[in-house]
């Protein structure tokens, strides 16, 4: 009887371990960037300057980290089902390229060129531009000459 109880207990533990392992191995990527901890908050100019000054050092600091970046929308484009938002200004060839999460499509569609915006995403490296992915908009400021009326 006691042996039978132990056997049942072992089977239950084995089932829990197997279930947990299966869940962890098959866990899909979380899109909840909002819930993730931010490592750095800074302005576009500051991040660009750091990468241009010392790319290796900047990569050590920012690579693979969640960074919240504030800047001006220089351009945006829709490609292969994803929006790409470029932060920077027209005086510099380098910019920050943010590959937005597809859950952000509506928000990005509303963005205007030259609008001030705050974007959060993973800094994944430097390839002519500083690249961000899994990015989301956390704050957008209205255009100064916006015709949007408040009721």
């Amino acid at each position: 009887m006691k042996r039978q109880k132990y056997l049942i207990l072992i089977i239950i533990i084995a089932a829990i371990v197997a279930g947990t392992a299966f869940y962890l191995l098959n866990q899909k990527k979380s899109n909840c960037m909002n819930e993730k901890e931010i490592a750095f908050k800074l302005e576009t100019d500051s991040l660009l300057a750091q990468f241009l000054q010392d790319e290796v050092m900047a990569l050590k600091t920012y690579n693979d980290k969640i960074v919240e970046i504030k800047g001006i929308v220089k351009d945006k484009e829709f490609k292969d089902g994803y929006w790409f938002v470029y932060l920077g200004d027209s005086s510099h060839i380098n910019q920050i390229q943010c590959k937005m999460l597809s859950t952000q499509n509506f928000e990005v569609e509303q963005l205007k060129i030259n609008q001030k915006v705050t974007i959060r995403g993973y800094c994944i490296g430097y390839l002519l531009d500083i690249l961000f992915n899994q990015a989301i908009i956390t704050k957008e400021e209205p255009m100064k000459n916006s015709t949007k009326k408040c009721f």
Partner: peptide, 16 residues
Amino acid sequence: VNVLMKAFEFEKSLMQ
């Protein structure tokens, strides 16, 4: 052609 390896995205986070 230049590619950042960390820009490859997988369906499952553990695979990535």
